[in-house]
Design a protein around this nucleic acid. Structure first.
Length: 400
DNA sequence: ATTAGGG
DNA sequence: CCCTAAT
């Protein structure tokens, strides 16, 4: 199984030989792992940081004070990369598949303990197999900050796979299925694309080096696509149907199903950073319905309960994070209180985005005042202002 | 993991 | 929208 990582880290190639996983260009050492046979004990787990037990927060009485923000990236990236390369060199073997102790067995448990580490997982049924996936799959819009270590546990053999966050779950699931189906892999290729990462599984018997990839006439090529904004649950197994009837089941892939019908571009623009570097910035214009949902959410659950609102009102919008909601609310607030006057340069734009209906801004203002009241232990028997709905300060300061 | 704020 | 600091 040739695993060619064309990403940012080093490329390593693996090949499957007689049910053994063999590192391609370095045939010695650790890397013979039995991949064949049995389907019973299989688990896919992804390690995740666990030092956090959510504290129920008390009332935030005063404004949180913050240390002067230390600006990130370049300064830090150097240190980070230094650390990373150091570690990487120290354990070159850990790049790619690596067998670990086979202590951990499998009866699907909530936590899998491996060499002192505890992996917190959730049992998930995918394609009829018991597969453990991380409890929390944080969706990051951009490249994951750091790699995570994924563990593949097959027949008591444990493979460690270092890949980047967004990619791992998907790939592991796809790979797992392939292995369970008894499909012998010959190679696994990764190729980054605009929309994320694409992995191609090549069935055994296909000589990658000898022929062209796109030729693939009689060869089974399986694909798995990963987009940073997609959650694993949104993938469904799919049969590719281009096989002879007898080959059924050997040809499968994973296909993404976008709930919002948005399979397309994510509007990424690169903006220069203060330190001369660049960073990517996504933009997704807020639609009116999104704004309304946000307002509704705030009215129901209260401003500040962003994760709640996200879960309950924005479940279908994978790209709106709780932070996005918070930011948008802040903007709405600003807009709703922005007093009228002379629309500034805003409307001089060519295609001014649709202004937020005054009614909504009004609602925002009401909610804002309401919540402000609620959080303050008012001394004056707070019957003072009942959030008078009649105030009319019509403006159009806000835009979607 | 979540939330508040600054940029 | 992105990023960090504080919870």
């Amino acid at each position: 199984m040739g695993l060619t990582n064309s990403c940012d880290v080093s490329a390593t190639t693996f090949v499957i030989k007689d049910n053994k996983l063999v590192k391609k260009d370095n045939e010695d050492g650790f890397n013979n792992v039995n991949l064949g046979a049995g389907k019973e004990h299989l688990a896919v787990a992804v390690e995740y940081n666990e030092d956090l037990l959510n504290n129920l927060s008390n009332q935030r009485a005063a404004k949180r004070v913050r240390k002067p923000t230390k600006r990130y990236i370049e300064e830090l990236s150097e240190a980070e990369s230094k650390e990373y390369s150091g570690r990487s060199i120290a354990s070159t073997k850990s790049i790619g598949f690596r067998p670990l102790s086979s202590k951990a067995h499998a009866r699907p448990a909530r936590n899998v303990s491996l060499e002192g580490r505890t992996v917190i997982t959730r049992l998930d049924s995918l394609g009829g197999f018991g597969i453990q996936v991380p409890c929390v799959y944080r969706i990051r819009r951009s490249r994951p900050r750091k790699n995570v270590t994924a563990l593949l546990i097959i027949n008591s053999e444990i493979l460690e796979l270092n890949i980047t966050c967004e990619l791992n779950v998907l790939l592991l699931l796809a790979l797992t299925r392939l292995l369970l189906e008894g499909c012998s892999l010959h190679a696994l290729k990764f190729h980054p694309s605009r929309m994320g990462m694409t992995a191609t599984f090549i069935k055994k018997g296909f000589d990658v080096h000898g022929s062209q990839m796109d030729n693939g006439s009689m060869n089974k090529v399986l694909e798995a696509k990963s987009t940073p904004e997609q959650a694993p649950e949104q993938f469904v197994a799919e049969s590719k149907k281009e096989t002879t009837p007898t080959d059924m089941g050997q040809n499968m892939g994973l296909k993404y199903v976008d709930p919002s019908g948005d399979t397309s571009d994510d509007n990424v623009v690169t903006v220069p950073t203060a330190k001369g570097g660049f960073r990517r910035k996504h933009h997704r214009a807020w639609t009116l319905s999104e704004v309304m949902k946000l307002v509704e959410g705030v009215s129901k659950y209260g401003a500040g309960r962003w994760s709640e609102i996200k879960r309950l009102a924005f479940a279908s919008y994978s790209y709106r994070t709780s932070v996005d909601l918070k930011d948008k609310w802040r903007n709405l607030l600003k807009a709703s209180f922005a007093q009228t006057p002379t629309d500034k340069g805003a409307n001089s734009r060519k295609h001014p985005s649709m202004p937020i209906p005054a009614s909504i801004l009004l609602r925002v203002r009401e909610l804002a005042e309401m919540q402000a009241q609620a959080s303050l232990p008012n001394l004056s028997t707070g019957k003072l202002s009942a959030c008078g709905g009649g105030s009319v300060n019509e403006t159009r300061p806000g835009y979607l």
